[in-house]
Every structure is written in C-alpha cells, then in structure tokens.
C-alpha cells in the first residue's frame, strides 16, 4: 500500500490515486510525420524497468491533479513526487518542473 505525498494534499493512501502510465512520453504530432514504427513506439514500446520508473499518477479521490512520480518498481519506494504542470505556478513554494 503506497503512501503518496501529494504536493497539493499531503500524504495520502494509494487507494486515492490512479496510475496513468509512464511520465515522459513525447507525443508525435501530425506535423512530425512519424513512421508507423515510430508511432508504434510512442503507443506501445516501454522501458518497463525493474527499478526506478518515471510515471504519472492522478489524485483521483483528492485534488484531481496529475503528478509525476519517481518510484522503484521493485521496492515500491517513492523517490520523488512533483506537480505535473508546465504553465503557471500558482503555489510558488511548490517546485514546478515537468520534464526533468
């Protein structure tokens, strides 16, 4: 049972959150004109590491915000939780660093 430190709500139980896939997928746009294989890689191909994994979760039964976690898939230790936002930082004391 994970205990996730939501930057907006504090430490909350795993059951309040939903996992939402790897964090750092770059979505090819129409303009990128990618090949079928490149598109398939974006859709399906995954690092799926046994160890540190960068992934996104959403605090479904909480603030509804998407978060970015660095989590160990073997030990389940959570190494980092960040706000998943690029634009404005409405809570200046919270680090805002999508894409690191």
């Amino acid at each position: 049972m994970h205990y996730i430190d939501c930057p907006w709500c504090g430490l909350r139980d795993e059951s309040e959150f939903s996992y939402g896939g790897p964090a750092d997928l770059i979505r090819p746009t129409l303009a990128d004109d990618v090949s079928d294989q490149e598109w398939a890689d974006y859709l399906f191909t995954r690092d799926n590491p046994c160890g540190e994994h960068h992934e996104r979760w959403v605090h479904t039964f909480g603030c509804g915000q998407w978060l970015r976690l660095v989590r160990d898939t073997l030990s389940h230790k959570i190494l980092r939780v960040d706000v998943l936002r690029k634009k404005q930082n409405i809570f200046p004391n919270i680090t805002d660093e999508r894409g690191i």
């Binding site: 994970h2 992934e55 979760w57 073997l74």
Partner: peptide
C-alpha cells in the same frame, strides 16, 4: 491486476 507497474 494491481494498478501500477511492479516487479515486487
């Protein structure tokens, strides 16, 4: 399934 990737 458990709802998150895991090797544990």
């Amino acid at each position: 399934l458990d709802r998150f990737p895991s090797y544990g």
